[in-house]
Design a protein around this nucleic acid. Structure first.
Lengths: 159, 159
DNA sequence: CAAAAATATTTTAAGCTTGAAATATAATAA
DNA sequence: TTATTATATTTCAAGCTTAAAATATTTTTG
């Protein structure tokens, strides 16, 4: 094996290790947040994600915009939206001029409820990552931003 | 607002940003791997995770050891194991001396099949993270290791 | 205009996930 | 020994997730 091959193999193993750590950290934090949403707000992570997306778009989003933003399937969003509508946190309204489409937006109650959840969520994350220094966080953020460009770049090159 | 409060708020926002990037990268890679497992091996991430755990323990694991290792619920593992058994990749054997317990291990076929999947998986990760330098990867790994200590430390202190 | 293609959304089938309840067995205590 | 408590696992109900099929509507094309 040449030294180039050796270096390549090392890098492969290191990347695999990186991925496994990334996964472990993410799952650990996710499990924590999931549990807290369940206990403190009787809610779930997918519901939180939908509310968070709609909170950013007060005028609402079409179902397809919502699923595109969250990077989940259309059919998936349908079910979550159904339940949020039933709970009175969001509403579906027709889109004038296109009878196929529906716009979804937060109700007053949904907005108030999400504001509470978002504040708690921010604090949970601050606590969970309390050990991370500002400097370290910023370094990781820029690493991730470059990785994300690569991940999406690869994808769009394929298309 | 004092300058201490300002710094605190900045750090909170930075950590939230870090968490959102972490989540985005992880989900993006996961979606990619999930798709590849589906197309190339007609399998899923949870199945891969179970096989990977069993591959490390040739003598097998009890159901509860398996769910503990994977950090998922007991009932969850039951279903995944059911399907893997049906596909002939793993087997359940009784534990001598304890008729409540079952040990699960890979079959010959399961071992061979997982070896193929693991090799492909390693390559997929290498490709997806091709933009990450060795140095960067190692820095992130040590950051994550410290974060993981914190995450688990917090948990065990609570208990 | 009428047929065909495209778009927006929902439904469906199968699998994943959880917490809680149910079973079965084992260990402990009275 | 028998009742109680603990442990190992499965079952259950509810919700999340996907890809593919089905509906409904709009746009494009012939």
């Amino acid at each position: 094996m040449s030294s180039a091959e050796t270096a390549y193999a090392m890098s492969t193993k290191t990347k695999l290790r990186l991925w496994l750590r990334l996964l472990k950290v993410t799952r650990s934090v996710e499990n924590d947040i999931r549990e807290k949403l369940r206990v403190e707000f009787d809610s779930t992570l997918p519901r939180f994600d939908v509310l968070a997306a709609l909170y950013q778009f007060p005028k609402g989003l079409r179902m397809s915009e919502l699923s595109g933003l969250l990077k989940v399937s259309n059919g998936n969003v349908t079910g979550i939206v159904d339940r949020l509508v039933k709970d009175g946190l969001i509403i579906r309204t027709p889109v004038p001029g296109d009878r196929r489409a529906l716009r979804v937006r937060l109700t007053k109650r949904g907005e108030e409820e999400f504001a509470l959840q978002a504040a708690a969520h921010e604090q949970w994350i601050d606590d969970l990552l309390s050990d991370v220094s500002m400097n370290e966080a910023e370094n990781m953020i820029s690493s991730f931003d470059r990785i994300l460009v690569e991940l999406h770049g690869t994808k769009s090159e394929e298309a």
